[in-house]
Design a protein around this nucleic acid. Structure first.
Length: 424
RNA sequence: GGAGGGAUGGGUGAGUGGCUGAAACCAACAGUUUGCUAAACUGUCGUACGGGAUUACUGUACCGGGGGUUCGAAUCCCCCUUCCUCCGCCA
C-alpha cells in the first residue's frame, strides 16, 4: 500500500501515475483526503479528552492519599462521565481509521516513470531478444509427448492420486527437477544470495504482508482448521521474514534465495494454457528476494535482471526480456521485467520469471524499515523479487528445444547434477 | 492432546493498582580527556499517530495480541498466541 502521507502530499502525482495503470484514482484520493481530515480532528479531540482524564485520575490519587475522600469522589464522578465521551470518540476514530485503510489498500502501486502505457500483453515493450531464436519445425513433439516418450512425467497418475495440474515426475524427470533446483540455488548463492528454506504454509498475517490477502484469497489453498495458507510463491514466507522489522542500514541490501514448491488454485484457467507443464497447481520454483535501500532499489532490479538472464544463457535457452506496460503490471509492482523462453514445438513464448521492484508498496504493509546509527527515524525499505527460476516451463523448453533423434540433449551446466548430458 | 510455569525497551533484568514510557546494568552512539588504542567522565539512547513558527516544545497510545474490571492497569480478571517443564502420541 502507498503511505497515507505520500498520498496526501502527492495527490496529483498519484492520480497521474495510476492513469498509466488504467486506474482512475481521482475519487479515492479525494475521499482519502476527507477521511484523513476527519481522522485528525477526532484524534485531536480524543487525545485532549484523554489528557484531561489522566489529569483527573492523578488528582483522585492525590486526594485519596491526603484523606480527602469526598473531594475524591466528586472528581471520580466527573472522570466517569468523561470516560464515556472518550469511548465514543475513540470508537469514531477507530471507525474512520478502518474506513481510511479500506480506501488506501485499494490504490495500486504507482508505476515507475519508464513504464510504457498500454492495455495488456500486446503493449509490452520487448527490451531484449537472445540470439538465434530457433525456427518452429513441423513434426517436433510438444513437451507433454516427450515427457511420455522418455517416461519423465506422468500427468495421468497425478490426476489419479491428486487431480489435474499435479504431475508426477519419474526417473530422469524427477532427477531433472532436482538438478535444476540445485543448479539455480548454487548460481544464486554464488551471486551473493543467502539460501532460505522456509515453511510451505503461512498464516493470515503473512498473506496480508505481501498482498495476497485479501484480494487473491481464492487463488490460495487454505487449511481452515489451522487458518493456514499454502504458499503460492516463496516470496510470501521469505519477504515476511522481514515483517515488523527495523534493519540496521548496514544490513542492506538483504539478498535471499529460496527453493519451494508453489501451490496455486488457478481458478478460471483452461484450454491450451494449462496443457502439460504450461500451468500447474503445484510446481517448483527458486525465488530471489531483495530488501534494498530506496536509493539503490533500481540498481538492485537491474542486477537481478542480469542475473536471471545469465541463468537462461547458461541453460542455452532462447529467451526474451519484456518490460510490462501499465495495463499488464500487477497491482503491487512499480516496474516488472518478464523473462520468456521460446518453446519451439509449441511455437510459443513461455514466462519463466517475473522480476519486480515493489518500492515501498510491500514494505509499508510489512512495516519493513531500516535505520542507521545516525538516523533519528526509521526509513521504509524497498522490496524486490523475481523467479530464478520457475521450473515447469524451463523443463518444457529444455525438452522441446533439445529433442534429437538420439534423445534430449541437456546443456552442459546440468551435467554435474544429472550425471549425463542426454536423456534417452 | 492433558497439567503447570513464563512473555517487560537492542540484551540482561527490576517493577503486584496512582508521581513508571518504564529502575539498574550491559551493548550502541555523540562529546570531553588522550600521541594512538584503551580506560574514565558527560550526554543521547523505542515505535506510531497528533498539536506546534514543522525549530523548540508538547498530547495520546503501546510492557506478546485482543477484550474486561477501575476515576486510574506493566500490575487484577477472561480469551488467544508463543516459549519452557512434565505426561501422552509420533516422522
Amino acid at each position: 500500500m502507498l503511505s497515507l502521507k505520500f498520498i496526501q502530499e502527492n495527490r496529483e502525482t498519484v492520480i497521474r501515475k495510476l492513469a498509466i495503470k488504467n486506474f482512475d484514482a481521482t475519487g479515492l484520493v479525494e475521499q482519502i483526503g476527507l477521511l484523513d481530515d476527519q481522522r485528525k480532528n477526532l484524534q485531536k479531540e480524543a487525545d485532549d479528552k484523554s489528557a484531561e482524564m489522566n489529569a483527573l485520575s492523578k488528582q483522585v490519587g492525590i486526594l485519596m492519599q491526603a484523606g480527602k475522600k469526598e473531594e475524591a469522589e466528586e472528581v471520580k464522578s466527573r472522570a466517569a462521565r468523561l470516560k464515556e465521551t472518550i469511548a465514543t470518540l475513540n470508537g469514531q476514530h477507530a471507525g474512520t481509521l478502518a474506513a481510511l485503510n479500506d480506501l488506501i489498500v485499494r490504490l495500486p502501486n504507482l508505476p515507475h516513470d519508464s513504464v510504457p502505457p498500454g492495455k495488456g500483453a500486446q503493449d509490452n515493450e520487448i527490451v531484449k531478444v537472445s540470439d538465434a531464436i530457433p525456427l518452429h519445425e513441423e513434426g517436433q513433439l510438444p513437451h507433454w509427448e516427450l515427457a511420455r516418450k522418455y517416461n519423465l512425467i506422468d500427468f495421468e497418475l497425478g490426476v489419479k492420486i491428486t487431480g489435474a495440474g499435479f504431475p508426477v515426475y519419474k526417473g530422469a524427470g524427477a532427477k531433472l527437477q532436482r538438478a535444476l533446483i540445485a543448479f539455480f540455488l548454487e548460481e544464486n548463492i554464488r551471486a551473493g544470495y543467502e539460501e532460505i528454506m522456509p515453511p510451505l504454509v503461512v498464516n493470515e498475517e503473512s498473506g496480508f504482508g505481501t498482498g495476497q490477502l485479501p484480494d487473491k484469497e481464492g487463488q490460495m489453498y487454505y487449511v481452515p482448521e489451522d487458518k493456514l495458507y499454502l504458499i503460492p510463491t516463496a516470496e510470501v514466507p521469505v519477504t515476511n521474514l522481514y515483517r515488523d522489522v527495523i534493519l540496521d542500514a548496514e544490513e542492506l541490501p538483504v539478498k535471499n534465495t529460496a527453493y519451494t514448491a508453489c501451490f496455486r488454485r488457478e481458478a478460471g484457467s483452461y484450454g491450451k494454457e494449462v496443457r502439460g507443464l504450461n500451468r500447474l497447481h503445484q510446481f517448483d520454483k527458486v525465488e530471489i528476494v531483495h530488501v534494498a535501500h530506496p536509493g539503490a532499489s533500481y540498481q538492485a532490479l537491474e542486477s537481478m535482471v542480469r542475473h536471471v538472464e545469465s541463468l537462461l544463457v547458461k541453460l542455452e535457452l532462447p529467451y526474451r526480456v519484456v518490460k510490462l506496460c501499465g495495463g499488464d503490471m500487477s497491482f503491487t509492482s512499480a516496474l516488472t521485467y518478464d523473462f520468456e523462453v521460446y518453446s519451439k514445438a509449441q511455437d510459443r513464448w513461455l514466462e519463466v520469471s517475473s522480476v519486480s521492484n515493489f518500492e515501498e508498496f510491500q514494505a509499508n504493509r510489512l512495516k519493513l524499515r531500516f535505520k542507521s546509527k545516525s538516523d533519528k527515524k526509521p526509513t521504509t525499505a524497498h522490496t524486490l523479487n523475481g523467479s530464478a527460476l520457475a521450473l515447469p516451463r524451463v523443463v518444457a523448453a529444455l525438452l522441446e528445444n533439445n529433442q534429437t533423434p538420439e534423445g534430449i540433449r541437456l546443456p552442459g551446466v546440468l551435467r554435474p547434477f544429472m550425471g549425463t548430458d542426454i536423456i534417452q
